[in-house]
Amino acid sequence: MAGSVIVITSGKGGVGKTTTSANIGTALALMGKKVAMIDTDIGLRNLDLLLGLENRIVYTIVDVVENRCKLKQALVKDKKNPNLCLLAAAQTRDKSAVDADQLKEICGQLKEDFDYVIVDCPAGIEQGFQNAVAGANEAIVVTTPEMSAIRDADRIIGLLEAKEGVERHRLLVNRVRPKLIKLNNMLSVDDVVETLSCELIGVIPEDEHITTSTNKGDPAVNDNKSLAGMAYMNVAKRITGEEVPLLDIDVPSNIFEKIKKFFKKKEQG
């Protein structure tokens, strides 16, 4: 059984790579898939924090590479979902501690035992990016509807296309605010997809739940009320090959619809 290795990347920092990794990984595990996550952001790790596993890390990817432990020893099992494992990055080293071939080998080994291997990529296009992409056969490019993020995403897509082994790359538009798009103050999702001419895998709305879930160390997909959590769930379904329509995150256009929606929300909440 050979699973697929999916790298989550963006080029620009702060667009939500790690949040996306944590949520997609957790969502896939909730669907019953066996998932391993690799944090390649050595020296600035955060994935463990988002999953609430920071107190369980004993061995890191650097220990594996430097043969201080076996790969299986370094995998930290999630406290809720036994299908989910994390291979954490070392906080006390830097990106040069690992090279691309070593990561490729780790991905290759994990692929044997897991359905999905999610690789959280660091920001930038230097060594860290090269390492993360090395073993991947699929990529998800995360961007936000801002010009700077789109430009960086364009660069990343260019690099991914040139890379051998990455068969498929898809775009995830994060932190979308329908209200601003309506007011023409933000690029719409269509604009982004058109600019980058890339296959879309999902649209994630801006959500306050993300902040609280990050602080709690519990990914948003575990929260049924979170709109972003639902959107990430849909993305995970699309990864497994399911056909899921895009989540309705549109704000109503006229005043009557607005009132209708407002009351609908009140009934729900």
């Binding site: 609430g52 107190n55 369980r56 406290k79 602080n215 709690k216």
Partner: peptide, 11 residues
Amino acid sequence: YSRRPDGTNIP
């Protein structure tokens, strides 16, 4: 070896 309990997760 011992680790901090999971409840106190806001370091």
